[in-house]
Each structure stands twice: as C-alpha cells, then as structure tokens.
Amino acid sequence: MPLKGPILAFGLAALASVAPSAPTDPSSTMGAERGGPAWSETKWPFLLDQWGTGRAYRCPAAACGVETNLYLRAKVGFCNCETGVADDAEVDRVADVELLGDRYVPAGDGRPITVGWMRGRSRPYSLEIARGARRVLAVAFNDKCDVVVATVVAERELPAGAEGAALAFLNGNQVLQWAKAELGAQ
C-alpha cells in the first residue's frame, strides 16, 4: 500500500539533512563516556511505521570527524529466540537500513559485537542515494527474543572509527538503561 513511498522519502530527507535540530534533552549529551565521542539526542526524523518511533542521536563533526547520526529502535519479540543475532542473515532481517531508503545491499560481512550483556553483529551496507552510494552501518543485538537495532549513517562517507564510536556510545549507561527499560530486562 502506498505508505511506503512517503516513509522512504522522509528517510532520504533525513539522510540528506544537514540542518542541526535541537536536542530534545540537553542533559543527554554523552560527553566522553567510555572514551566515546559526544552524542546528543535529536528528534526522531522518520514517519511512524510498524515499529514505532525510536531514539535518534547525533555526533558532531568535531567529535566524530564527520557529523554522524545513530538511530536506535527495539523490536520486541522479533529476534530469533533460539539463536539470537547469530549471523548476517539475521542482521539483514532485523536491520533498519530501509528507514533511509529501499535501495541498499550488504557491503561486506558482519562481525560479532557486544553491547552490555547482549551479543549481536554489525554489518556495513551500501545505500544508493541520488548521487552515488553511502555507507551505512547496521548494529543488531538481542536479549532473548527481543532485538535492538542501531543504524549509523553520516552526512558523508562513514569515517573509519565510526563503528568504534557507535559501539562505545551503545555501551554507555544511557543506552543500556534505555535498553533495559525497553526490553523489560533485569
């Protein structure tokens, strides 16, 4: 049904946006938590879809080399309960890259990651945009049947340290506390 077009168009608009939006919670600026750069929360830029709204964060160019956005959502009950995010097929299944556009392909194999008490994988994707392609990183990790997915994208090509910066932020107290509440984890 025709909802898809507007959602994707909005995603592309969000991807292309360079205008900074005010943090919804100034106190959420992450500082140099666990050695990671400063991430501040911004407004969720996408239209409502079947997964609801998530949390959006921005890392300024001064801290991340290039302005980088991270979109975080929980998909409660939609992970493989038995194996978790054990392979790239599961990352492909649960990832949120389509928030940014529907023309994307994996750009390499994924690798195991750990976020707090959760394990998962990160995998790069190449997203087709109006003038070429852009690298997007999808990070997925689970607690039993529940999965959290993070989508990392920059206004230009993702810098080499983007994955490390994103993982440092995801392993910070703010995201872990959010994940515990969102997933109902103990």
Binding site: K4, Q50, F78, D92, R93, E98
Partner: peptide, 10 residues
Amino acid sequence: MRNSQLKFLC
C-alpha cells in the same frame, strides 16, 4: 503475523 523477513513487501 509480520512477514518473516520483517520487511514490507510490494
């Protein structure tokens, strides 16, 4: 239920 690949199909 939600599509097994969790993606909208058109």
